[in-house]
Structures are given as C-alpha cells and as structure tokens.
C-alpha cells in the first residue's frame, strides 16, 4: 500500500510526536507513505483570508507535484487537508490557469490520514494486530472543523457526527464516548492574535469532555492537539479547575494498542502528561 505524503509544516516542530508515531505505525502496517518531494506550505488559513489567488495556487502546486507521481496524496493535518481539497475542487471545476502546461486531471485523490487509516483492509489488519487493548480507557473523539467541514469541499459523509476516530477507538478496545463537541471549533486560526477568545473556546471543549466523563481526548490534527494540550493549566487555573485531560494523536494510541516501541518518547512530548493516566489504567 503506497501513497504520497504531505506532512505539513508542524510535523517537524510542535507536532513531532505525530510524525514519529505515523512513521512507526504505518511501517508496522506495511504502508509506504512517501514524503512528497519538494512540497511547499499549503497557505493554511492565512492565504484564503487575504489572498484568493494564493489560497488556490499554493496548495495546487503540491497537487500537481503529487499527480505526476500517480499516488493518492495523504495528509495528517486538518488545515492542509482542507486547503488541498479546496484546490482540488477549484482545479477540477474551472480555472485551470494555475499552470497551463500541467493541468490537474483529478486522477489522484486527496485523503486525510484518518480517512486513509479507515480503509476496510487496514481496519482488518489493525483488528487482528491489537496486542494491548485500551480496556477501560474512556475517550472522546475530537475531529475539529476542517476534516469534515464544509462537506462540499471535504466530501465527508457524517459531518455533524463523524465516526472514524470513534470506530478506531472501539477497534482498539477502548471505550468511545459520545459527546456533542466532536466538531466544535477550538479557535486554532486565532491562536496568536486573539488568545482570550481561544482560551474560552478551548475551555468550553475541555469542560464538555469532563462532563462526558472522558479520561482523555483523541485528535487527528496537529493544530487541534496543540490547542487542547498546551493550555489546560492556565485555563484551569483561571477557573479553579484541574483538567488534566491528556490529548492523543490517534496514531499514538494505535502504537500503544499495537504494542509498538517508542510510545514513551511520544508521550514525553505532551504538555499534559498522559503517562500517569496510562499507568493507572495499566496500559503502560
């Protein structure tokens, strides 16, 4: 199983453990994710806010690179996914003006990593290979905005109540808990400019996870994780609450459940340390 991989800019920095766990888990499952040679930034939310042309042409450049290699393009980031999909729609619709010599033919698909890991054949393999079931671990799945919204761009099927993460959690033997904030916005795009607003949005999400009696949160995006993981202490302090809700990348939990090596190193990178919880649940 082979695909081109668009890591996105945070995988070498704040989301290092996401990259590391993706490597370990995918090679264990026999998936070849080949980093797209010469990829450049997708423009994230900045481009579409102030420059329409760049909002399409920045991701389009990467799509054209990927199409030459003839493999589907997989990305682990919600924002990259959304921009690549937006470019895909724009290019297959009308304006093929981006690079007339190599127009995009739409012969490859853009997939979020979560979608890719939800393929039936992979699900079967994962099911067979679970060595350490996540028994008693109560998890709420946080999809955030851009993996699912708007469905005209993402082609998501259940955008108000997505299931992919929940299914993986159940598959790994964990307890996936329903909560109403699966796709509530965490304010990621405002993080550096309007921290007060972002703190309120994160606080609401953490409060809801507590109310749902979750032990932890699972995500599939570097920006979502950074937001939910790094500011629990300061938000809690202001409210007189200790949240202590570890936030995982789904690939980290896969690594744990599949009994793979390296999990300690990933967990050490989190600001809300997940190790005490995992020890208490006898998962480490």
């Amino acid at each position: 199983m082979k695909a081109s991989f668009f890591p996105g800019c945070s995988l070498e920095g704040t989301a290092r453990e996401y990259g590391e766990s993706i490597d370990v888990v995918s090679s264990f499952l026999g998936i070849k994710l080949e980093e797209l040679p010469g990829w450049t930034c997708c423009g994230a939310s900045a481009a579409h806010c102030i420059n329409e042309f760049l909002s399409v042409s920045l991701p389009a450049r990467n799509l054209l690179l990927a199409e030459k290699l003839k493999h589907d393009l997989v990305t682990p980031c919600a924002a990259c996914f959304s921009r690549l999909k937006a470019a895909e729609k724009a290019l297959t619709k009308e304006s093929k003006e981006i690079d007339a010599s190599t127009p995009f033919r739409g012969e490859i698909k853009v997939l979020h990593l979560l979608e890719f890991f939800s393929r039936e054949d992979l699900i079967e393999i994962i099911k067979d290979q679970v060595k350490r079931p996540l028994s008693n671990l109560k998890v709420v799945s946080y999809y955030g905005c851009l993996i699912v919204r708007p469905p005209q761009i993402t082609d998501a099927k259940n955008w108000e109540d997505p299931q992919a993460l929940d299914n993986l959690i159940s598959l790994m033997g964990g307890e996936s808990i329903f909560w109403p904030y699966k796709t509530e916005c965490c304010g990621g795009s405002l993080l550096l400019t309007n921290l007060d607003i972002v703190r309120r949005l994160i606080g609401r999400i953490l409060d809801m996870a507590r109310e749902a009696e979750a032990d932890c949160i699972v995500t599939a995006c570097p920006l979502c994780l950074a937001n939910l993981d790094t500011r629990q202490e300061e938000i809690g302090k202001a409210k007189g609450i200790t949240y202590n809700l570890p936030v995982f990348y789904f690939t980290e939990l896969l690594g744990l459940a599949l009994g793979l090596k390296g999990t300690q190193r990933w967990f050490r990178r989190h600001l809300t340390d997940p190790r005490p919880l995992l020890k208490a649940k006898q998962l480490m």
Binding site: P150, C185, L190
Partner: peptide, 11 residues
C-alpha cells in the same frame, strides 16, 4: 477578523 473560518455557518 475574528471569524475563525470554522465553516459551521456555511455547512
């Protein structure tokens, strides 16, 4: 400027 581009409204 404070619209977070979450796409909820559009959806």
């Amino acid at each position: 400027w404070i619209c977070a581009s979450c796409e909820t409204c559009t959806t």
